[in-house]
Write a protein that binds this DNA or RNA. Sequence first.
DNA 1: TTGTAAGCGTTATCAC
DNA 2: GTGATAACGCTTACAA
Lengths: 357, 357
Amino acid sequence: MRPDAKGKRSGEAAPRAIDVARAAGVSEATVSRTFNEPGKVRPEVRERVLAVAERVGWLPHGAGSALARRRSLMVGAIIPTLASGIFANYVTAMQRVLAEHGMTLLLGVSNHDPDQAKRDVASMLIRGVEALALVGEAYESDLFAQIQSRKVPYVVTHTYNPTSAHPTLGIDNFATFHGIARYLIGFGHRTFGMIVPPRSNNERVTARVSGVMAALSENGLRIRPAHMKEGPWSPAFGRDSLHEIFADRAQRPSAVICGNDQIAFGAMMAAREAGLEIPGDFSLTGFDDDPLSSLMQPPLTTWRVDNARLGRLTAEFLLERLAGMAPSPLRLEAEILERGSTGAAAAVRSLGSENLT
Amino acid sequence: MRPDAKGKRSGEAAPRAIDVARAAGVSEATVSRTFNEPGKVRPEVRERVLAVAERVGWLPHGAGSALARRRSLMVGAIIPTLASGIFANYVTAMQRVLAEHGMTLLLGVSNHDPDQAKRDVASMLIRGVEALALVGEAYESDLFAQIQSRKVPYVVTHTYNPTSAHPTLGIDNFATFHGIARYLIGFGHRTFGMIVPPRSNNERVTARVSGVMAALSENGLRIRPAHMKEGPWSPAFGRDSLHEIFADRAQRPSAVICGNDQIAFGAMMAAREAGLEIPGDFSLTGFDDDPLSSLMQPPLTTWRVDNARLGRLTAEFLLERLAGMAPSPLRLEAEILERGSTGAAAAVRSLGSENLT
DNA sequence: TTGTAAGCGTTATCAC
DNA sequence: GTGATAACGCTTACAA
């Protein structure tokens, strides 16, 4: 009898295909076919093999199988964090589509750490993933070099960037936040604050900030340095930042753009504490459409990305690449959810029905 | 030249250990030793092998390696959802501890679906995980049977249940919510409402509800059926439920226990809409200490579990099992964060300094 | 439709 | 210290 694997209790080892084969009175090859090409095996034999496998609790051995097939049937995805729920729909959808094609998703969480991402990718390549999805492209270049040298198809998600060296799938973060700024400018706002999570290792946040800056600049506007806050992803940072932005009564913005809804929630709390009315004293925007956003007082104007669709498209993109096709990058659009936290600037309201120059 | 693997571009195939060996003028065995038992290979040879491996971009082939070692160096963890951030610290800590021991975490997300959990576990067993961590024990029994028949060490987390058939690691959900109810009873509350996520496929929620019921019952109290709400995990459900609970002005509870902070947030929104004061008109409790809880108006009284510690302990538990040890189940305690949303019941307050019977 | 046998890429055992 | 060589468990031509 074979010796047991390390760390397992004594007793009989896990059954192998050959054990099933012998018990069913067939060859190993027939056992394999029963599971992989059932059409090629006579029904009564198939039933017999299936019954034996069930009885002895046999499952194919992944490593042996991967070795023989030269396929792992695994796809990897790296996401930056589990701390918010925003990747839930993306991952779930990806998982579902891949499962429909007999593939398994390997999930890696980098915690916004490029080194962790590199370790995750290396570990996945060693495990033999056939394709990879990466959130964003802010990784060290040798991470991509390693993927490319292995000729593993991959795609960068949550961003659309036709000038990138990598295929991308997602929203155009620059254009989307450019649109947010224009939306507020359209209400007559001329002074802005912005509160965002860290730009380091996150080209999406960087693009969002640039988009806002560009839109303001096109209208001869800018954000005062004291009104530009960058710090931890957290409602607490949103709250503290808003207090700081409104500390100087002489220089108060009439609109504050937040990088996400969680930060905006904190800002709303601070506004209440400071006795500021939204949107009376200033307009506030979020991003992501957190489940709480529509329930806030006032309901938060935010933007929503169809992340389930993104997950589906990502899986399909990779499956097509594996099938030898050359799918194109795709641009998704964020949908505005215009709610109560945004409105006309005070200066505009005071003009009554007159138009703004 | 070997043919390429399916789905990859034409060109040379991935390098193997033998390619590195030949280029470095050593045997395959030495290449293997260089990576797995570096002490056993002469430094200058080691350097040479490492240099060649680096140059040709060789990484050991996981399947081949797993097959030869009869070890996958992988540990699986199944979590129920990615929708809230509550598993972030748990997963991150687990991942870190396992990595320190050269093991990789495979993450599966069941979305609270027992079938998905079963598929995830089967897929992980096929991939050869050496150990498994499962959140909760509300799975079909054949899921555990399959794990056990493979003799794969496992642990059930986020619950402590010494009477369970499985080793558990986490808080005692019954006792914890029993404590929450007693905490409120101590304030003089006699009428209660409760808003919880679905109990189906979630023995933790079931235990929490039972804990509250038991504490009330011990004090001759009960929750009116109309004040017991069970539904989707979401702030919106919390809001709707609170409105329903307070619809009948003649029968209003003085305390509402929520299954988590998200639901409590919704309840707070509803209270504001209904013109109810917290804790003046009723006390409200959450669970999990969401980052937003301390910022709410009033700050939400909630309970916090050290999930990073739980993740660490889970990884250590499994590593010890793999090392042939027999670690014990462990009970964690939830820590109360007593904030502004709880206080004395109106009846008690009106008694002034008198004590409650 | 089924069986035989040659891999798949690595590690571990045993000589040297 | 190093090198042959035999596994590891499965799949897949190819033959029957």
